[in-house]
Nucleic acid binder design. Structure first.
Lengths: 133, 133
DNA sequence: ACCTCGTATAAGAATTGACTTATATAAGTG
DNA sequence: CACTTATATAAGTCAATTCTTATACGAGGT
């Protein structure tokens, strides 16, 4: 299972959030998740399994308890993928001046000739940057 | 659909990678994705719809063409979620945890060969997503 | 040994998601 | 207008995911 698939589930994201605060036993995690999501113990256990098998957590035994902790490796991978997009929001807010003043005029001119389109049920027409005056 | 669910699909991740290089028409994206994943035009169009409706892209019309571009907002959101885990790899681990966690990881890596380091997001091949259990 | 607690697994039902083919609609071209 | 190109939507199928209940199993206590 790919890292992003693992993070696609809200229960698993929440479990990771809980573990981010520090190591916790399966039982402790289960209690919180049950309260918050209303799902069964096996359901939580299955999510813990996914997290464990995909490398998001480490586990150690303490008697009958299983203590889970975050293993950052896959998260790091996710972060690395995001890396290439980081410029998109650092630029928007910061280096906006340069990029904007230069290339946007021409672009906006093209934008404006946008005519009425296909029947777009979900309004895909969302101006990228409308306020550059 | 939550941002992480959107990114859970390898085709959508690939589309975003393509758009990261700059605005592209639906047709251009479709050609590349069809070549790399072997799926139909409607399939790609449906992925574009998901990206559009969940805010990952903007679209503008140029004649009959639809030009897609990355909208970083949801990616930023994802990045913000990751924020709380950043300490796990930027800083030193807990004095207590380091040795232990390292040992566990090594053991687990031997026992089950997990291919967590692979970035299959850019893998230009068929969507055989789950090679892991 | 027996019982209970903590946790995991098994098996199956319900849901969701991603594809397919067929078709619709707007725009461009003769 | 008729035809083609670019893209989107509809409807249905199939597979993967996520639950559920029932059960297994190791660890500790009595």
């Amino acid at each position: 299972m790919h890292a992003f698939d693992v993070l696609g589930d809200p229960v698993r994201r929440r479990i990771l959030e809980l573990l981010a605060a520090g190591e916790q036993s399966s039982g402790e995690v289960t209690a919180t998740i049950r309260a918050e999501f209303g799902i069964s113990q096996p359901a939580v256990s299955q999510h813990l399994r996914v997290l464990r098998e995909s490398g998001f957590t480490t586990v150690r035994a303490e008697g009958a308890r299983r203590l889970y902790a975050v293993d950052a490796a896959p998260l790091k991978e996710v972060d690395a993928w995001l890396e290439r997009f980081r410029g998109f929001w650092n630029q928007r807010l910061d280096a906006l001046g340069t990029e904007l003043a230069r290339g946007k005029r021409a672009r906006r001119a093209r934008d404006q000739q946008t005519t009425t389109q296909h029947d777009q049920t979900t309004d895909p027409h969302h101006p990228t940057e409308s306020s550059d005056d």
